[in-house]
Design a protein around this nucleic acid. Structure first.
Length: 271
DNA sequence: AGTGCGGCCTGTCCGC
DNA sequence: TGCGGACAGGCCGCAC
């Protein structure tokens, strides 16, 4: 599910309800996520204030004075703010109840998401230490993409989905960005010009920022912290539209599996 | 080192 | 109506 805009939407929604509040009780109903929920999570969180909620790539970082809860939504996860009397549904795996009455509820049917605890710098955690730049930061440039891609033979779509290159670009936004940049997703990353990468970097930035403004993309199950879907799906040009007309030239949009992921492109607009 | 693939899970949809 | 198979937004870890 969630790519960067969905995770950022979640972070923004959660922060005002949790930051500065004390955790009262942690309830783990299903500890078997992608990685097991730490058995001592409750004692690490209970009685301590959540000082801040940050995001790095698609990871959410909940900080208290002792350490950081690292959360990831996987493919189907969501985090909502619930009240004490709201019904517990199937796949509501973890609750973090706050002293202010709010409950942070982690829901994840496929259980590809996870919750980990670290007392070291979370950015040095094994899972985060090799991440590339944030796409909305100044470090992310076409020049960097060009540099990193020299001699790389992977299709450019795989390249921009590689979190060592840039974080947060998943399957949907990879297809969409390459469409807007006019680049065929199968092209070798190493053969794309600096000028094309400069344009692509700018487009990735714009596409992600616009999606965040719309509250992310809901294809199936993404909901924000209020349980509401995102609205960016209405603005997708090619993703999920195989067989339909390209919005720019009316040519039929094609789909093709690239790197085991379904990809969508216009054979006329994307060279 | 770079690349490609299997695997982790459940839910949904499609064809028979 | 039921059943098997394919597929779904991520990403680690392994083999080549």
């Amino acid at each position: 599910m969630p790519e960067l805009p969905e995770v950022e939407t979640t972070r923004r929604g959660l922060a005002p309800h949790l930051e500065g509040s004390k955790v009262k009780k942690v309830t783990v109903r299903q500890p078997s996520l992608r990685w097991a929920v730490p058995s001592d999570l409750a004692e690490k969180l209970e009685g301590r204030v959540i000082q801040s909620i940050q995001r790095r790539g698609k990871y959410l970082l909940f900080k208290n004075t002792q350490g950081t809860l690292i959360g990831h939504l996987g493919m189907s996860g969501s985090m909502r703010i619930c009240s004490g009397d709201s019904e517990i549904k199937k796949h509501d795996h973890v609750d973090i109840a706050m002293a202010n009455g709010n409950i942070l509820r982690f829901h994840d049917p496929r259980r590809f998401g996870f919750l980990l605890w670290t007392e070291d710098d979370p950015l040095q955690h094994k899972m985060l230490s090799k991440l590339g730049p944030e796409p909305l930061s100044d470090e992310f440039t076409g020049k960097l993409l060009h540099q990193l891609s020299r001699k790389r033979k992977v299709p450019i779509k795989n390249f921009i989905m590689d979190s060592c290159v840039v974080v947060g670009v998943g399957n949907i936004y990879a297809s969409e960005s390459l469409f807007s940049a006019g680049i065929r997703p199968t092209r070798s990353a190493g053969k794309v010009s600096l000028a094309a990468y400069e344009q692509l970097a700018e487009i990735i930035r714009i596409v992600l920022a616009r999606s965040i403004d719309q509250g992310g993309t809901t294809l199936k199950d993404f909901v924000n912290s209020d349980g509401q879907p995102g609205y960016f799906a209405q603005q997708l040009n090619v993703y999920g539209r195989a067989g339909q007309a390209c919005p720019q030239c009316q040519t039929e949009i094609k789909s093709k599996v690239i790197g085991q992921r379904n990809s969508f492109y216009c054979p006329a607009c994307q060279k």
